[in-house]
Amino acid sequence: MTVPMPPAFDDDVLATEEVSQARLVWRRFRRHRLGLLGITVIGLIALACILAPWIAPYTFDKPDTSNIMGTPSASHWLGTDELGRDVLSRLLYAGRISLLVSLVATLLSIMIGVLVGSIAAYFGGALDTVLMRFTDIMLSLPSLPLLLIFSKTLRDFGPLRRALGDNTSVVIIITVLTIFGWMNVARLVYGSVLSLKAREFTEASRALGASSFRIIFTHLVPNSAAPIIVAMTLGIGSRIIAEASLSFLGLGIVPPNPSWGSMLSGVQAYMFRNPWLAFYPGLTILIVVLAINFAGDALRDALDPRLKN
């Protein structure tokens, strides 16, 4: 919902109160058992993925043709894939890309969304109309078709591919997910800033001669932090799925980089022989996104119980 949100924090609170505020949030979050479980699961998986080069039993790209589609064993806990590569190691390395892509795309979306939403709300007038109409337009676009068209075009655009080399697909995915992912944040921030703008502390800052820029980014935006944090958490989950869907349709991450989505799309040909190859990455995505959603839900309750829709 995009009704204007009341601020979660007041700007003019003392430092000690801020600590207690954080403690309060944590206390509320802790009560949410699924949320706690979620954050633990994400933390562990993310840590394992980050540490993949040190903890993964094998590298992700070394083929072993003597052990193609091997069954799980002491040396390969989840078995091996169509080229005899260790599935567990690949899942860990792929997680780095999947998490990186979704995290970066979410952060960029938030940055654009905050910028557009706060500027439109603060300055109002023609700027408001232009920016928010543009946001509405972007929101009402058929996103998946355009996402596919954009990915296809960028992939087929030679100069870009030559400039970026191996990481082209990663950059492209981040770009398209950002282009189509900032609008909800913009609307959230817009509503929030609009209501804060009228408040006394804004007036006071302005009277004291603070620049618009300063007011927006030191007072208004931090006060809209709660919904942004929630949107960001949930956004990471939906972007993991979006990346996987694009990879499934053949427009996602390409080797040499593995991602959870590309691991899934690559094994379509072996569905009958070894459905487990598709099962593991799918299940990983499900678990991670589920954990993120639980954590996001708990975070929403904890930051502001009134935010619960």
Partner: peptide, 22 residues
Amino acid sequence: SFFGLSMPTFWFGVMMLIIFSV
């Protein structure tokens, strides 16, 4: 509903295809 929201649809579809058709 959380499961539904977290499920990669294509994966769900492919799993259904394997189970119910194959």
